[in-house]
Amino acid sequence: MSMILEIKDLSKYFIAENEKLLVLDNINMTVNKGEILCILGPSGCGKSTLLNQIAGFDKPDIGYIKLNKTIISKPELNRIMVFQDLNQLFPWKNVLHNVVFPLKANKIGNSKLERLKKAEKYLSMVKLEDFHNYYPHQLSGGMKQRAAIARALAINPEILLMDEPFGSLDIQIRTSLQKMVIDIWQKTNITVIFVTHDIQEAITLSHRIVVMDKNPGRIKNIINNTLPRPRNSIDSVFSEMYKKVYNLLEE
């Protein structure tokens, strides 16, 4: 397993009302190529802030993040973020063109036809093949997030960044989308960094779980999750893992 991303001695402050607030305190971790890494923590632990640093939307005050040995300084196509916000699709473009547009803007693919084929492929992967012509407002929340994932995958990024993408969805839909993420990972073997506050989600998806603490945000522990797939939350091994992670969070 080769390392793709390295975070070294990273600290981040926010300035609020003339006070310097330490949000991320000395983060050190690595991400392996082709793994699903979950960052788990309570709200306010800085896990989304950390993901924003990885995406390049924001810069660390101390330390650095390297992708394939190169320091990250800005957002790039090799790391694409899928947000929690259900409005991340462009409402004025239909599903197909939401996926095609970034390809076209970056001249990915040699022809219009090639781009359309590519978009269709990833829309099928997220089971939206029958919804190409729908506009976002005609889709359910789960379908919107699936379209956003398809748009991200079509770019063929090295890392897929997911910032609580299913946080606003109800439990059944969330479960089915988790299955879909695993499915996609099995098909593409893409590296995923997945931020969540849901222990069950982290255990279901991840190879490793980075458990974070708040005030200030720091890494408590990194847990290897070797449960056999498919994972089922009513299995006893799953419950044990759940207890272990839960206790770690509660400490």
Partner: peptide, 9 residues
């Protein structure tokens, strides 16, 4: 953020 991430001109 989307514009930045997808490197739009």
């Amino acid at each position: 953020q989307l514009g930045d991430n997808y490197e739009l001109g």
